[in-house]
């Protein structure tokens, strides 16, 4: 017979979404922020991002080639996503060797030690970032001033740091600047508008659902609003303070791209909301009362650790059960 008969159990069709497509979509969603960042901080942004991506892919390849047997996961772009996200968490003035170390920690320590894609309990890019933050605090917190894009410019404090250290009031940084990235900060966190554009793209491509990002940001806003109320703020500050916290720092980058990382977020919508509320509360606590001006990374990592517990106890609503 000219035919070869193929047999398999049902189903016999597959949705068009593949792991590679999902990861590619995440990279595409990050491109607007990359463009804005390049405009703000100059071409060095591209170089850091490229280096980070290259190192992540290289480490993943080497580990898979020589250390653990298993399928090659390079073609599915997950290392690219980690690389871009790691770069987005670094200041534009970072020395190149710190990027390499960060990529190594992210891929080798945070991802591959646990078995690679889908098995890592903590977000690799964030582990890389937090490691660098603790190991190289000076380089990691020296942010070049934007505007002229020159790296010889004076290092400035981020908006959050400025507010934290009482250098400025929360309303000193305009909403417009926060949206368009006209402020110092790490690569990916400076342009709220570009990140929101990426969010819309991810929603449209059904890569993520709105629950986790929106819940995180809403929690932060409510938290900030209550704090503002309790300390007796009035008038414009009542909405400016929450808005500032939602737009400033890594809130959007973390909420949209980091907290929604598949393997480190809960499997159910209900669980995702619990997870997101936790992130929002911890972030605000660190921002307002902790030692660091920014708490998003720590908050996500802390809640990452809770995810297995959430998955164990928060089950989806079963059909037919009250």
């Amino acid at each position: 017979m000219a035919n070869k008969f193929i047999v398999s159990p049902a189903p016999h069709v597959q949705s068009a979404q593949s792991t590679a497509r999902i990861m590619r979509d995440v990279v595409i969603a990050l491109i607007p922020a990359l463009i804005v960042s390049t405009v703000v901080f100059g071409a060095n942004v591209l170089w850091i991002t490229a280096l980070s991506v290259f190192c992540c892919m290289l480490f993943e390849y080497l580990i898979q080639r020589f250390l653990c047997e298993g399928a090659n996961t390079l073609p599915n772009f997950s290392a690219v996503v980690t690389g871009v996200l790691l770069a987005f968490n670094l200041p534009a003035s970072i020395p190149w060797w710190i990027v390499v170390i960060g990529a190594f920690v992210a891929i080798a320590v945070a991802k591959m030690t646990f078995g690679g894609l889908g098995k890592n309990p903590f977000n690799p890019a964030l582990v890389g970032r937090v490691f660098l933050l603790i190991a190289y605090p000076v380089q990691m917190t020296s942010f070049p001033m934007p505007a002229n894009g020159s790296f010889d410019a004076l290092s400035g404090a981020t908006a959050l740091a400025a507010v934290k250290h009482k250098l400025a009031a929360a309303d000193a940084v305009g909403v417009q600047d926060l949206l368009l990235g006209n402020m110092p900060g790490s690569l990916g966190e400076v342009a709220a508008a570009a990140l929101l554009l990426g969010f819309v793209y991810l929603l449209w491509r059904k890569v993520i659902t709105w629950h986790i990002p929106v819940t995180i940001l809403a929690t932060m806003a409510v938290f900030a609003f209550v704090v503002a109320l309790s300390r007796g703020d009035e008038g414009a500050m009542l909405w400016q303070f929450p808005l500032f916290h939602v737009l400033a720092g890594g809130a959007l980058l973390g909420a949209i791209f980091m907290a929604t990382d598949y393997s480190t977020s809960p499997m159910t919508v209900k669980g995702g909301v619990i997870f997101a509320v936790g992130i929002g509360v911890i972030t605000m606590c660190i921002r307002l009362w902790g030692a660091y001006p920014e708490g998003m990374s720590f908050a996500i990592l802390v809640m990452n650790a809770v995810v297995p517990l959430i998955n164990k106890y928060v089950k989806p609503k079963r059909f037919g059960l009250k």
Partner: peptide, 10 residues
């Protein structure tokens, strides 16, 4: 491939 815990099945 391997499960990426995307929760799409859930």
């Amino acid at each position: 491939g391997s499960c990426i815990k995307c929760a799409k099945c859930v």
